[in-house]
Design a protein around this nucleic acid. Sequence first.
DNA 1: GAAGATTGATTGTTCAATCTTG
DNA 2: CAAGATTGAACAATCAATCTTC
Lengths: 210, 210
Amino acid sequence: MEMTQGMSEHGASGLIDDFLGSAHVLAAIVADAIEAESLREAGGIPVTLSQLKLLKLVSMTEAQTISDVAAVLGVSNAAASKAVDKLVRMMLLRRSEGETDRRSIHLSLTEPSRRLLAAYQAARLRKLEQVFGSFELNDLRQAAQLLDRISARIVEQGVREGQMCLQCGIYFREKCVLRELTGRQCLFQHHKERSGRRGSEPAAPADMRK
Amino acid sequence: MEMTQGMSEHGASGLIDDFLGSAHVLAAIVADAIEAESLREAGGIPVTLSQLKLLKLVSMTEAQTISDVAAVLGVSNAAASKAVDKLVRMMLLRRSEGETDRRSIHLSLTEPSRRLLAAYQAARLRKLEQVFGSFELNDLRQAAQLLDRISARIVEQGVREGQMCLQCGIYFREKCVLRELTGRQCLFQHHKERSGRRGSEPAAPADMRK
DNA sequence: GAAGATTGATTGTTCAATCTTG
DNA sequence: CAAGATTGAACAATCAATCTTC
């Protein structure tokens, strides 16, 4: 029974485990007590976090292929197709054929989903202010930087090439450090570029994330 | 095309979103590229992360009720029961009736699962050394502290009382700051106390985490 | 023929109901 | 009858196969 101690001498391994544990716990609690809870408070229609993610994606990019949706949601094409279908039946998404390519799809929000999204954002903002009011922005900035550097390092080291980054979860980011540090492409960005290039609609989501 | 800036006026909300995004991304990447990947490298039997979690729990606490297993895994009792059943069929767990209370269950590892766990731990340690070799332990310590304080604050603020903490994921912690800061109980700890009290076995897992 | 989306079969999850022991 | 564990029905995820449009 060796494999007892810590990483190098002693302590290091325990420290790293603590660090990883802290990051995991924070992520889990945020998802549960901030995101999902805000969603519940947004009231009305019961919607899962993964469904919200889809709605948010649509509001931000006017997504036009199921594959992109799937990648951003982190699920299979099949699952994305079914998820979209369900939201359409719930009247939270509008689905129309692509204009230039009839294989692809154009998704847009409906009034109810716009309201839902806005209510969620408001509830979330309230919670975040309560929680983060007492922390130093500088500390947060610094910590975020460290986390990003670690993420980047893991990706550099460990992930086989040719894969896009799709770890954003619900946090689509204009300025993604992973992207910058690793040169890895991200489907959110990828889609924004593509849909930007063909200026079919102004689309102006304008409500999220400000 | 605005949607660039941030929270209240400018900056704060964007910063917090970035921070939360960084934490989420790190957690996701660690799960994918460290934990799951180490598990794949451990080779032999294909086991999911959630199954590993169960094995690890057993190795650390000699778990004795399905409900505890369920809570720590973060799934329902039904799912836990089925998961245990499957691992038993795969010969990775031994299940016997409780000694004092025949309703409950006593779980223990088998030789193959012991080997699997050890291989996983070794692969994981290798990866962690590669990844974290270049970071300052002090920065990690400090960041972990900040993360913990934020988690604790969210729990204080947002979570309805009477719930246990079960957010550890795969990171069972002897010294959980959430527990200390919030007084909230944790099932891992809870079980350790209980099983410590009835000294039925030395059990000495002793191999994990030290 | 290849890219996109959908459908069918399997697996894993939940909730509700049931069975067993205390 | 309460606490524990299991079983059955319903729902979402996956992979493989299919259908449609380019």
